[in-house]
Write a protein that binds this DNA or RNA. Structure first.
Lengths: 246, 246
DNA sequence: CGAATACTTGAGAGGTGTCAACCGGAGTGG
DNA sequence: CCACTCCGGTTGACACCTCTCAAGTATTCG
């Protein structure tokens, strides 16, 4: 199924130093190299369904996806935004707890479930890295619950932009160009709303309000420039010393 | 400081099979025995402050506490309710990310930070258990974000009671007595509100509404009987097969 | 160029927050 | 023993924020 997706050598992999393999030495990388396979999904694909069996664990190599849960009546909450180097799947469980959907074309580096579970057991470098990543995600999830529980709609949108800008910068290893920060939103207004616990209309209104107030500038619906990042962070309810938010 | 708190042998510890030590063999327990110390806090004490150094990792042996974050303007969000066997502290970090406050008298089983970090590195049974616990907490935090982001006030209160009843039952290893489920709330209405992203008034109103509708019965502010647990679960927005919630 | 989709904006409804009064039990002191 | 106070909880009235429903605009893609 992935015959047209040539494998990249782990040493040249863009997520080499951030993914679950980050601490592996060259011997361990050789093992991973032997077990891994790539799979590419187009934008808008379902990578897994809540409650369905999960045959592989994956790292996102390129692209962007969401993890979400949908209630019977259609209300949906996104519980995680997945960017390159993020891990999909939960060792010790054979089913997916959430729906995972690609926002852009996504390239996964996958390992068969049983083989990866064995690797976790036998490779401290992997188990350790997995623990660190899980702890980081736990902190991020808890920080996000402050956003969901206590921020206003305007603050939520600002907090999302702050968080996304930081994560994109860290993924792309980057710039704080003098002329402000530019980000491209991989999400629709509806997907943002599902992440923020808002409706898409309220989300759109708050984006417009932030633009009107000069906190952000937009060249298209998805392209945003933040002239004064500090100001946006304040709009997001962060205390002066950057206390809150991922 | 804890000279009046006699150590319980790990083998007789009430959280022996659920805490971070759950997978340890007797040799490993002997090591823990040598390194551990107990500390008891009264109700309403601050076990740690967000941003402050954390000298020990702890497991809750008895009692109940909250982890929360407070914004500059006083808005507070509780990001975790800690019950016996829950772990406090984050390996790899020397400061606390959250305020931790005891709701009842709390007895902690503590390990000095550096010593515990070394244990994690050298004892796969501990590292493994820590990973499993962290993954469980991550799932719980993500599930809770659905509550915060998408449920109504009434559903939030119901979801909290469902979640608390399940956790208390698992802690106390217990009963589903024919005559419904009884739970004692360790939290004030204000603490519940902070956990649910509501005001205390709205929380109180929804508790009253659930009582008025016969979903719960109360013998005091803190003592609640749930005559039909399934009905409460439906009020909490769970789908029929118990899809949602921790 | 036309259709579909995404986004924006408006008007009104409804749910939750705010502010305030009141209730009831526990502890205290006369 | 009773009055008083304190504190947590309850309830009411109203304001405000976000949602809902709807129309209209922009963008993308065939």
């Amino acid at each position: 199924m992935s015959k047209f997706t040539p494998l990249v050598a782990c040493g040249n992999c863009p997520i080499r130093h951030n993914a679950v393999c980050a601490q592996c030495d060259s011997d361990e990388l050789a093992t991973l190299e032997r077990l891994k396979s790539y799979k590419v999904y187009p934008a808008g694909a379902r990578l897994s369904d809540a409650g369905m069996p999960l045959t592989h664990f994956s790292s996102i190599v390129e692209g962007c996806a969401t993890m979400s849960k949908t209630l019977e009546d259609g209300r949906r909450q996104t519980v995680g935004l997945l960017l390159p180097s993020d891990f999909i799947g939960r060792p010790g469980r054979t089913t997916s707890a959430y729906d995972v959907e690609s926002l852009t074309e996504v390239k996964l580096c996958r390992f068969e479930r049983v083989e990866f579970e064995r690797l976790v057991q036998t490779t401290p470098h992997i188990a350790n890295r997995l623990l660190t990543m899980t702890l980081d995600e736990l902190d991020a999830a808890r920080d996000w619950s402050v956003v969901l529980g206590r921020l206003t709609a305007r603050e939520k949108v600002a907090a999302f932009l702050v968080s996304l800008a930081r994560r994109l910068a860290s993924v792309q290893g980057k710039r704080n160009a003098g002329s402000g920060v530019m980000i491209h939103l991989p999400l629709s207004r509806e997907a943002m709303a599902d992440h923020l616990g808002l409706t898409l209309e309220t989300t759109s209104r708050q984006v417009s309000a932030l633009r009107r107030d000069g906190v952000i500038e937009t060249s298209s619906n998805r392209d945003i420039r933040i002239p004064d990042f500090e100001r946006l962070a304040i709009e997001a309810g962060e205390d002066d010393d950057g206390g809150l938010i991922v």
